[in-house]
């Protein structure tokens, strides 16, 4: 079992003909993930690695019944692409596009909430469910097993690259992942750590969750509140990077757009403290994830 995606997921890729999207399409297919359709306006009727391309999401959904869209369109067109997906009944959106204007993100995230559509990202590298060999996005590249093997640990990462490294640490500890999710490095994203902990709580295939965090936002504080309210009862292992930023002048941006310390809020040390208080296994050094997983999961 896993969360969000499985071998039943009916996948569409918006912006499939782009350079990166086309490469990712090939890697996804090589991994065994079924991709039903792609959309690029003006390229309808073509194929990308055997995947049929349509001009509109409407046509792709009508023909293939897609329920999930992976969005690779450039920032200037992302807003319209997301609204198109929502308007055509897509239920899960994974937005890879980076540098989407904040105003556009706020608007489409609002529209998605109103329509009950789940959004991962923007600025995500994707999601993977290794047991079903389903991945959406560049996550794992062309050598997926290096980092992602099937197992019972969920991974949530605010950093795309660290989604792989964190899953690799889980593997190194002797376990595997149920689902690994790169939730996006932006300050404004569709699904937060708290939202995904809720899904992992209800997934019988997930025994524990590891999170990789950065400075900024209130995601860790919200996750801690959620745990204390009894919303998440499985073991949670957390690492928060960027403690050195606390010695820097306020307003400095390091790491992703979400990693900004402002007004004393969003400090890694405060996040670690808060998560500890809620009962999470918070590690000082990333390598301790391995020992902690072995100690707690046995």
């Amino acid at each position: 079992m896993a969360i969000l995606i499985s071998d039943k997921t009916r996948i569409l890729i918006q912006g499939i003909t782009g350079r990166e999207a086309s490469m990712v399409t090939r890697h996804m297919l090589d991994y065994g993930t079924e991709i039903l359709a792609g959309v690029t306006p003006g390229r309808g009727g073509q194929e990308i690695h055997g995947v049929p391309v349509y001009d509109t999401v409407k046509a792709a959904v009508r023909r293939h019944g897609c329920d999930t869209s992976l969005i690779y369109v450039p920032p200037a067109f992302a807003y319209d692409a997301v609204m198109e997906a929502i308007a055509n009944g897509i239920k899960l959106l994974v937005i890879i596009t980076e540098n989407i204007p904040q105003r556009d993100a706020v608007r489409f995230l609002y529209a998605a909430r109103q329509s009950g559509v789940r959004v991962i990202g923007p600025n995500s590298v994707g999601i993977i469910n290794p047991a079903d060999r389903v991945k959406l996005g560049a996550i794992g590249g062309d050598n997926v097993e290096r980092c992602f093997v099937p197992g019972r640990v969920g991974v949530i990462s605010r950093s795309g690259g660290m989604t792989a490294e964190t899953s690799w640490m889980v593997k190194r500890a002797g376990y595997g992942v149920s689902t690994s999710i790169s939730i996006g490095g932006d300050a404004l994203i569709g699904s937060t750590i708290r939202d995904l902990l809720e899904l992992f709580e209800h997934d019988p295939g997930t025994e524990a969750v590891v999170t990789f965090s950065e400075p900024g936002t209130r995601q860790e504080e919200e996750a801690a509140d959620f745990i204390e309210k009894g919303g998440f009862t499985k073991p949670l292992f957390s690492y928060v990077a960027g403690r050195f930023t606390e010695g820097m002048p306020e307003g400095t941006v390091f790491g992703h757009a979400g990693a900004i310390i402002s007004g004393g809020r969003g400090k890694p040390s405060a996040k670690m403290e808060r998560l500890k208080r809620a009962g999470a296994h918070v590690v000082d050094h990333f390598d301790q994830i391995i020992d902690e997983l072995r100690r707690v999961l046995k």
């Binding site: 990462s157 605010r158 950093s159 795309g160 690259g161 660290m162 490294e165 490095g185 990789f212 950065e214 400075p215 690492y239 990077a241 960027g242 403690r243 050195f244 930023t245 390091f254 790491g255 992703h256 990693a259 000082d284 050094h285 990333f286």
Partner: peptide, 16 residues
């Protein structure tokens, strides 16, 4: 170093 999260971790690790 890189990427976004990786750099934060690596910088912290050097300082530690």
């Amino acid at each position: 170093c890189g990427g976004g999260g990786g750099s934060l971790l690596l910088f912290d690790a050097l300082v530690a």
